[in-house]
């Protein structure tokens, strides 16, 4: 069958020349546009935190278990000039999108009360901006040893040994009002990037609903962030009541405490700021 010069038929072996020329032009346009678009879309991203999730690598830590208001493992990191030990708290977090409490309760059901005892645990480290968390990846099997509190030993190979501080009590920093975004510390510290913001909101809701303590991320003008763990004024978890405010701008007021390297905000005052560009610009928020 003769090819019609002015008519295209897909099942013919070859398209007529004018059609081939048009398609060639379209392909050249795409060949130029596609790389430019890919480049622009990547280049203009806000960037990602330097948080680290040591996925697949288990670390053994030894320290004092602190259960309230949120579960920590308290370990010494160095000694100061006055020979006063400096401690760091590692936030304990459960496997998947769950808090550590269910795993800790299982441990206690087997071994009795563990609070303020020395625990040797194995898990996956997550750390960023001077804060660290340990995911109890192996759940029940993550607890290797339990012992009574004792004086420190010399640190050995990959195991951080601790020296007990008699004063594990947090320091009261007074009343504060803070504005920021509530997210979950597991993602924020490095499991997900970004671990905050609108696309991550539903994940943060799942993590907090699963028992991971909520975290207030407060950014200053230079994009540096401070993090505050949030609990009720009496130290009880407020996870369930705060879910609707996760992942959006909020203002919180309450008592601030410093627990070694972590800040803990005791609050029941959560006010949504609702300052999104869409709400302000269009004023089409429906059924307000």
């Amino acid at each position: 069958m003769k090819t019609e010069i002015d008519f295209y038929i897909g099942w013919q072996a070859k398209a007529p020349l004018p059609f081939r020329r048009a398609v060639r032009r379209a392909i050249i346009t795409m060949a130029v546009t596609v790389p430019i678009l890919a480049g622009l879309l990547v280049w203009k991203q806000r960037g990602f935190s330097g948080g680290v999730f040591e996925y697949g690598k288990l670390t053994i830590l030894e320290g004092e278990l602190i259960r309230t208001p949120v579960p920590f493992l308290r370990i010494p990191v160095k000694q100061t000039v006055g020979n006063v030990p400096l401690f760091e708290r590692i936030l304990l977090i459960g496997y998947n999108k769950r808090g550590a409490d269910s795993t800790l309760n299982q441990w206690e059901a087997k071994r009795g009360t563990l609070a303020n005892k020395t625990l040797t645990v194995r898990g996956t480290l997550i750390y960023h901006d001077g804060k660290a968390a340990l995911e109890l990846t192996e759940e029940n099997d993550a607890l290797l040893r339990v012992s009574a509190l004792k004086e420190s030993d010399v640190p050995t190979h990959n195991m951080a040994r601790f020296q007990l501080s008699p004063s594990a009590s947090p320091v009261n920093l007074g009343m504060v009002t803070l504005s920021g975004e509530i997210t979950d510390p597991k993602c924020m510290l490095g499991v997900m990037k970004p671990g905050e913001g609108r696309p991550h909101r539903s994940c943060a809701v799942r993590c907090i609903a699963g028992g991971i303590p909520p975290l207030l991320s407060v950014r200053n003008g230079t994009d540096h962030a401070n993090y505050y763990l949030i609990v009720e004024p009496d130290g009880q978890p407020l996870n369930a009541s705060i879910l609707k405010d996760v992942g959006r701008p909020v203002q919180l007021s309450g008592r601030l405490e410093k627990a070694d390297n972590w800040l803990i905000l005791y609050t029941d005052s959560v006010r949504a700021l609702a300052k999104t560009k869409l709400d302000e610009g269009s004023q089409i928020a429906m059924c307000r």
Binding site: P199, C203, R206, L278, D279, C287
Partner: peptide
């Protein structure tokens, strides 16, 4: 990434994690 391994199923999480269906921006 966002909905698995939580305290509810993935599809339930998809429709309930952000319950603010009334506001345009949310």
């Amino acid at each position: 990434q966002f909905h698995s391994r939580g305290n509810v199923g993935m599809l339930k999480s998809l429709f309930t994690s952000e319950p603010d269906y009334r506001h345009f921006s949310q």
